[in-house]
Amino acid sequence: MDLNTVWFILIAVLYIGFFVLEGFDFGVGMLLPFLSKHSDPQEQDRLRRTMINNIGPHWDANEVWLLTAGGATFAAFPHWYATLFSGFYLALFLLLAALIVRGVAFEFRSKDDNPRWRRLWDTCIFLGSAVPALLLGVAFANLVRGVPIDAEMHYVGTFFDLLNPYSIMAGLDTVLTFALYGAIFLSLKTKGEVMERAESAAQRLWLPTLVVTVLVLIMTYFYTDILTKLGVNPGFIPIAGAAAFLLSFYFIRRRQMGWAFILVAVSIAFAFLSEFMILFPRVMVSSLNPAWSLTIYNAASSPYTLRVMTIIAVIFLPIVLAYQAWSYWVFRKRISGLPEELTY
């Protein structure tokens, strides 16, 4: 396996890591206004804080997976980085703006008692979670579907070329999946009222998520070259991903949320892995001319840079995984929402 392939896999791992981790904290952010409904504003605030404090220690480190994926794309495939980010310019701007206000909102919302202050930041958390979930689904669908890229590797479309039935449906799918995933996470990490609401949200979200996912799957056969890439029988990964999602309902119904969480995580990971499998060895598909697609060869850095980066990644990625796993171990307990438990 050449280093270009290694880096394609590594970048896929970084994006998948990002979706598997940040997916549930996007979900918690999106569920924030819905699971906290209460006639008593103080009780409502307590419910919200219980939700936010569960992702408090983790959201930032989860987001670094995206930053690292971006940095790794820059280092290993500069043309991919350049074409993607200058091409998806306004979409990326919206993504950045959403992530900016979201991060600040977590940190700031509980540092002042003014209800309007808190409402403002809660809106930022909701939008800052829903908008990226939508946009990332849209962006990844466009990567495989193909966008207008010319012979000079320049994106020659507009913002609205990114919005087509397939990408919008895929965006809707990531939104629903992450919301479901967030609900399962919350039901694992809370007690009492929030837990019950999260469990019932998970039960209600599963079917709509399934419907949209099936639609996206069908559309994938029409809008992408999955047939030539993977064939009518797409192979183990996509099928296992779908099976994991179907099976998750059994555990959601039985309120065995640990299993449900693992299965949905696997289905998210395998769904994006399937997408990267359709993409390979391309990194961006040109809708104008297949020959103009960006690939792991024509978009790559020099072999020397790839070698240096491989050595560094092999040494440090396991260390990162170890201490991040430890941070989840430290905060493994459920939060019941007592005032002394709440930091954010």
């Binding site: 408090g56 220690p57 983790h58 959201w59 930032d60 480190a61 987001e63 670094v64 930053l67 690292t68 971006g70 940095g71 790794a72 794309t73 820059f74 280092a75 290993a76 500069p78 980085y81 850095s301 840079t305 240096v308 980066m309 560094i312 990644a313 440090f316 990625l317 990162v320 201490y323 991040q324 941070s327």
Partner: peptide, 20 residues
């Protein structure tokens, strides 16, 4: 791009995880 990616891998993960 290389130092930027290394910065994210070596530094951003470290500071964000441990600050949390």
């Amino acid at each position: 791009g290389a130092p930027l990616a290394i910065e994210a891998l070596l530094a951003f993960f470290l500071e964000s995880t441990f600050l949390g």
